[in-house]
Amino acid sequence: MDASDLRIALVAGNYNYVRDGANQALNRLVGYLLRQGAHVRVYSPTVAEPAFEATGDLVSLPSLPIPGRKEYRFPLGLPRRVRKDMEAFAPNIIHIASPDIASHRAVTWARDRNIPAIASVHTRFETYLEYYHLQIFEPYMRAGLRRLYQRCDALIAPAQSTVAVLEAQRMNDEIHIWSRGVDREQFHPGRRDMDWRRAHGIEDDQFLVAFLGRIVMEKGLDVFAEVIDRLKQTTPRARVLVIGMGPAEEWFAEQLPDDAVFIGQQTGNDLARAVASSDVLLNPSVTEAFGNVTLEAMACGLPIVATSATGTNSLVSHGENGFLSQRGDNRAMAEALARYAADPALAAAHGEEGLRRAKLRDWDAINSAVLDVYRSVIERRRKGE
């Protein structure tokens, strides 16, 4: 089956209105598919001023702001005008990228027409509940995810560690890996800029710990702050650089030392410069299915200190390109940071190993795996298997 034979309807809860790792991966995938000659139509909520320009044709879904997280929107389904548009587009595969009402409706629409549907898993949504003290609802969320994912012909996940969790949770019998790449023309050690550091009041001999990502509680902000507090007790010259923005920014600033540097959301070469100008990435999040920020830091030659979790475990090998700690072991993370601060040669060696691994991740080769999954499920459905 040629790529030009594919007609893909992609349904996503956030395609471009807020920038995050998941929707940037989706936009890269759509760009790759279009270059191969495939036909793609994206269905997602839209806003007047999106974070970046959408790749491909984008049809707006009705949506409402999510309570408490108004920057994100919740799709309300597939109204008649959207279903008519989808009928006219005549997809031969549906790809859903978020477990919401629109995705449920899209899978039902596909099953009613004997069209295969796949789902890409971008984050561990059920783990979010703990950060908002709603753990009691986790079994119900997991059951809802299972109902949606089992109605799909296949799942694609970004790392083997995530696949293992999905298999254990009985989400689907067929799960493939769609990993993540990194733009090595953008992210590389040559972006390191000591003048930029100095302009932000960071001295050359200070040990700069980076936080990179949306400033939201599910990124492990409380853990990050406690680890830094422990680190400062043994390494007073340590500093914090926060790259990103989000609704918990004020809370985060209150928890971190007064000399923490917040530079807001960065993009393009500005983002790469900020990452490369740091000395280590501290990533305590357990909610990612992959961890794009970890790979970007590796591509800049940074060692990684992180919580052992899905996604991260597929990128970081303990003692080789970073240090992993068990969830809740904040002391171990602080000790790992202090070790890097005291031993620049070790930090450099681990950074070099991370860079070597990052160089192996080519976006086109990675996205071709999704193309293979599309072809496989379409062929299987045609054969009636």
Rank of each mutant, 00 (worst) to 15 (best):
A248C: 08
H188M: 09
Q150N: 15
V209T: 12
D329L: 06
P75S: 13
G268N: 07
A159Q: 04
V240D: 02
A12Y: 04
D229C: 03
R113W: 03
P284T: 13
F89Y: 08
L148V: 05
Y17W: 08
R381I: 05
I93W: 06
R192E: 05
L166H: 06
R184F: 10
M86Q: 04
R356A: 15
A119E: 01
V370L: 14
G328Y: 05
T310V: 07
V373L: 07
H95Y: 09
I118T: 13
N292V: 14
Y131D: 05
D258A: 15
G13H: 02
Y131K: 05
L324F: 05
R273Q: 12
R142C: 06
H95C: 04
M1S: 11
V280K: 03
I96M: 07
T234Y: 00
I177K: 13
D193P: 10
P79S: 08
L355K: 14
V293A: 13
A347Y: 04
Q160N: 11
G31C: 13
A336W: 02
A274P: 10
A253R: 15
R356V: 09
A9E: 02
Q169V: 01
T312K: 01
I8H: 06
V227T: 09
L148P: 07
P158H: 02
P62Q: 05
G311P: 04
Y132V: 14
V373I: 13
N23G: 09
E87M: 11
A336M: 05
D153M: 00
L337R: 05
G384S: 02
P189E: 02
M245L: 08
P99I: 01
S285T: 15
E138S: 14
V242A: 13
K232W: 00
I366E: 08
D204S: 13
A299T: 01
C300W: 02
V242Y: 06
S120H: 12
P158G: 01
V42R: 02
V293C: 12
R19P: 02
V242T: 09
N14W: 03
M1G: 14
R19L: 14
Y17M: 07
A225C: 10
